[in-house]
Nucleic acid binder design. Structure first.
Lengths: 232, 232
DNA sequence: CAGTGGTCTAGACCACTAA
DNA sequence: TAGTGGTCTAGACCACTGG
């Protein structure tokens, strides 16, 4: 089970970077030099370099050469799903409201729409083992094929709600995460009697033209959620 | 400025996926079929398919074909740096403690080390415009070349502290994010007099053999941090 | 100008899958 | 067995950077 040649090139160069023989900004041996070094064709060398570029180890400047990149020290991948996180999983939801409304000025501005377009509001409570763990509000720009049947809404995550009207491949998403003290209404919803903070996650969804198609806020009891991220 | 042929193939197939002509699980035309369709060579077709695979649109099964993937609806990219976030930036730090200690049992277990190995503790306060915004504690497994000069420590982010002893390319990182009520000590550090929650970020760093080399916790005033994430 | 990376060709052999 | 994707070759032409 010997590695293909292009992966040996990848490992060799990764190793040179790891031990510091190649440092960020340094030029890598040219493609023709690597062809000679590994006694192989240029396409094989380039396949290896493509892997390194995809993994963020190198970048190329046409006419100049390939160079070692600076590692992205601050980049993390987070999997966020309002129903599931590393310490908790929602097993029941309660639909508080489904309505079609005329957006107020702030909402219309956030959704980059006008006040004569309809917006669907969905408010839900999430439960784990009978206890409320999160309060969830979503606003969807009304489009044909939107879910209006309660059964479809109750268990759906935000992207799933959009699946009838927007291709999920084209969907762009943003989240904002912060901590906040609950107001009285949310304290009632989440059975908070003492001072328990909320973890708040705002979500915004955009179609492939970068037009907003929905936004949502989920207020988690602080003791019911931990978000995890990993590098690379 | 006409696109190279392989990118036209990429756009065509992306479009077929976006409009639903190709759905997750569907097979894509075989490479030889695409060669005929675009009147090109197989390597050009494969270059296009490689781009689509890298971007998560398709996957291949040797001997069977290329297939449309399911989009990763829950995946976000977050840039986290204890000194900078979307609503705040640290402009001053205060070093509370730098020490070499013998780890207690819990810490030794977290760092997968034994109690006879030394650990560096660094405790800092972060300030913005004169106000404390975060309290930061880090534990580093002691290694040669570790920073012990205060100047080096004060302004460094966690990965930067490791740069003398570990290749930053090989560094694996994990973060855990949650909300918590501050205890009395942290309230004093962060000038919290009323009920302001904390956003807590735990960081763990591993070397390329997945051995822990450091861990840290940063307690942010809830009004001084928002973390942002975007899809792909 | 020589050297670099970007694109592309028309073949080849292999391992794997399915009929 | 025929078809699939995975690897690889030995060329080619292009646009770009630098001396």
């Amino acid at each position: 089970m010997t590695n293909p040649l292009y992966l040996q090139i990848v490992e060799d160069i990764k190793n040179k970077i790891s031990i510091g023989e190649l440092k960020p900004g340094d030029a890598i041996a040219s493609e023709s030099a690597l062809c000679k070094e590994y006694n192989t064709s240029r396409m094989t060398v380039r396949k290896g370099l493509a892997v390194l570029a995809n993994e963020g180890y190198i970048y190329s400047i046409p006419g100049k050469g390939n160079f070692v990149a600076k590692p992205e020290l601050n980049k993390y991948t987070v999997y966020y799903d309002e129903m599931h996180n590393s310490i908790n999983s929602v097993d029941k939801t309660k639909l508080l409201e489904v309505n079609i409304i005329i957006p107020d000025e702030n909402l219309a501005a956030d959704l980059q729409t006008t006040r004569n377009k309809n917006v669907i509001v969905i408010r839900r409570l999430f439960y784990t083992e009978g206890c409320p763990v999160a309060y969830d509000v979503k606003y969807l720009l009304y489009q044909k094929g939107m879910p209006v049947v309660e059964k479809e809404i109750e268990q759906a995550t935000f992207p799933e709600m959009m699946s009838k009207s927007v291709s999920l491949f084209a969907l762009k998403k943003e989240i904002v995460i912060y901590a906040r003290q609950p107001d009285e209404e949310i304290k009632r919803y989440l059975n908070i009697y003492d001072e328990l903070p909320l973890l708040v996650v705002e979500q915004k969804l955009y179609n492939k033209d970068n037009k907003p198609v929905g936004m949502g806020i989920t207020y988690f009891r602080g003791d019911s959620i931990k978000l995890q991220g990993i590098s690379q």
